[in-house]
Design a protein around this nucleic acid. Sequence first.
RNA 1: GUGGCUGUAGCUCAGUUGGUUAGAGCACUGGAUUGUGGUUCCAGGGGUCGCCGGUUCAAGUCCGGUUAGCCACCCCA
Length: 452
Amino acid sequence: MFEVLPGFRDFFPEDCLQRNFIFSHWKSWARRFDFLEYDIPTLEPLELFTRKSGEEIVSQLFHFVDQGGREVSLRPELTPSLARMVGSRINSLKRPVKWFNIAENFRYERQQKGRLRSHYQFNADIFGEPGPQADAEIISLVISVLRDFGFRPADIKLRLSDRTLWSIFLESFGFEQERALEVLAVIDKMERMSREDLLEKLKPYFNEAGEDFLASVELLRSQRDLAGLRRAMESLAPTAGLKARVRERLGNWEQLLSTLESQGVGDYLQLDLGIVRGLAYYTGFVFEVFQINDKGQPEGRALAGGGRYDHLVGLLGYPDVPAVGFGMGDVVLGDALQEKGLMPPLIDAPDIFCVTGGEAERLLAMEDAMALRQNGFRVSYPLKGTGFGKQFKLAGQSGSRVALVYGSEEREKGTVKVRDLQSGGEREIPRSHLLKHLPDIIAEGIPTESGD
RNA sequence: GUGGCUGUAGCUCAGUUGGUUAGAGCACUGGAUUGUGGUUCCAGGGGUCGCCGGUUCAAGUCCGGUUAGCCACCCCA
């Protein structure tokens, strides 16, 4: 017997129904925000990913050598491919470039909850616009989608942070470029590490001054509103030059937040500089969306994450172009929808179920079924002969709205009996009038004789 | 990659101190039912007890290994 590979999933029809429910929401909201759909290959040169993330990523990629001797890999994400597409035509694309994609991504990793070796991810990105209104557009889209799934502000929070402020902060301690990123990586782990371990990790950078540094980091991380963030940053910036950059950056914050407030999604935001995101290429606003528990604490894996990456396209060898985007995976989202009871009952039923008597009647039904199908109706019938009773049972189980009854009596009169499978009401109409009347019957039903 | 827990029918699970041919509910198939239903009743199919080995007269049950899943690390899309 065969089983699916570890970390992969079979999608039975009921699973596809749920997947399509998620996909259609994603797509619908991307369209409403006027993002255009694009797509990329499943298989890419291995180097496309190592260029961005370094050689250590290779052990987590599904990669192999193809028959032509090329080192290739299933895509673990689509940002590098997207950067290639955008970069290669950046001078002819109308800006801002607003694109989205829904695709399967692969990673060779030990699986656990919310994290498989294959998952589907919704990505939307904006290229060519460096200002905070592009960030707001992305964040607003993320929240709009999740809100439409039924998550309320009490269920989820988009934790919003800023790599730019962290850079200014680290610069005030004398850290820039690589060393700033290394210290940032330590800050990223603060939620999960003890104070002793943190101090140990910071020792190479601060010697004995780690305590003071940590206190400053804590001050920043604990801020939950813009006024507090402003006070904290200004108290930490030692020079006039840094103070000016803080003021300018906080102006961007104001614009971002006021845009999101006026779009009515402010209730989902939580200012939280504790979000850093591990990836090195993020440059400005960054965010992650989490479910929150009764105490208001984030729980589980991020439902979505993203941010600004103004130098990635340049890093991959194309002209520099500012960019901001996000990703949202189907696994964590699907789990969250199940837990919260937000996955609605999804029905997948035909419009019409044909019930037939003998062979002559069956052939008439086949003729009508095809005509109905050509007009967009979803029509089903048994694929083997059985009695009327059995067929009505099947019709009921199918979830179909109406049954069309083709018996010898109807055949002789040139009619067909239409039965409303919900109300039990019936109506006999000439076969030639089927197409004309069925849309109304399906929409409005047939009352029972008692007028019920 | 490291560690802990768990594997009995498609699903949820029983299965006694090791003891004959491994069970239930749901689901599925057929029938009761050849002109009207999702109820009901009857019957049936479906298992290498994850896999391999060991202990034993005897293993679903005990032991070892392995594999898969879950959880936590590591890491992060």
